[in-house]
Amino acid sequence: MSKASLAPALRGSQSPATRLGGLAVLTALLALAAIMLLPDGGWLLALAALAVWAAAWALTATMARLQPKSPAAGRALAIAIPLTFGVTLLFLWECVVRGLNVPPVLLPPPSAIAATIVSSAGLLFADFVQTFLKAVIAGYVLGCGAGFLTALLVDRSPFLKRGLLPIGNLVSALPIVGVAPIMVMWFGFDWPSKAAVVVVMTFFPMLVNTVAGLAASSAMERDLMRTYAASHGQTLFKLRLPAALPFIFNALKINATLALIGAIVAEFFGTPIVGMGFRISAEIGRMNTPMVWAEITVAALVGSLSYGAIALIERRATFWHPSVRKG
């Protein structure tokens, strides 16, 4: 496709689909030009990168203005737009770093990070096992479980509820990661100390949310259970716990992020020679930034995937909730 045939497409006189296709092709062509210029660098590359950015921005804007008719197309668009944006950003990062000869110690290009991920996949996997599969999972299950059970107990006593809730709310604002050095002293360098930090970090959000959730069912509904002569346990399992599920899942989602942060930061205070936090602090000491970025990429992936998994379970479990059900 030559530039001449692109021109009318870009003027916007055609249908949005034509315009979209034209812009996509233009962006791809410019990106190709920029890639060919990459080895040389210099101002020509900067110009090409700028052109790619402008074209990609126009493409994103066109896509954002589309109003798809079918819901499937809408969903595809909702993924395609941020994806285009992200890929453009990565591409610009690559061009700027290689074009301006930024030293890789400061900011490695994405290609170098990707290469590091591939070449040291074994090491990254070992860190993942140590930090996530051992420390985070154990701490997360224990912390959330303990918070949940405590909430069930506290719920029986209004006095405790009034006393613990303000404290729980206060604690959730405190920098709890600070207990990491204490836990490392108590439980040693290996993963149990990290799991302990995660337990402390995840306990209070779960407690506060579950207690709030158990109060979520309305008085009418509880009265209905009473007219059925339901016992405390029956009311709990058939009415109050299902009604509390959105709150509990909210805590689970908050905790998914907190747990990973807790485990990684705790590893800054001392670990055996494996683990995500250890790798980050050790490799940055050797100024091996691509490896640090690779580790951060893995952490980001793990964080958003575990969050996504919990969100998925939430959609299945709370299908009746207004924010999930359709119509």
Partner: peptide
């Protein structure tokens, strides 16, 4: 949803 805090040591160094 990602542990942004992990980036802190790198920024400092």
């Amino acid at each position: 949803t990602i542990p942004i805090l992990a980036i802190a040591p790198m920024i400092i160094v």
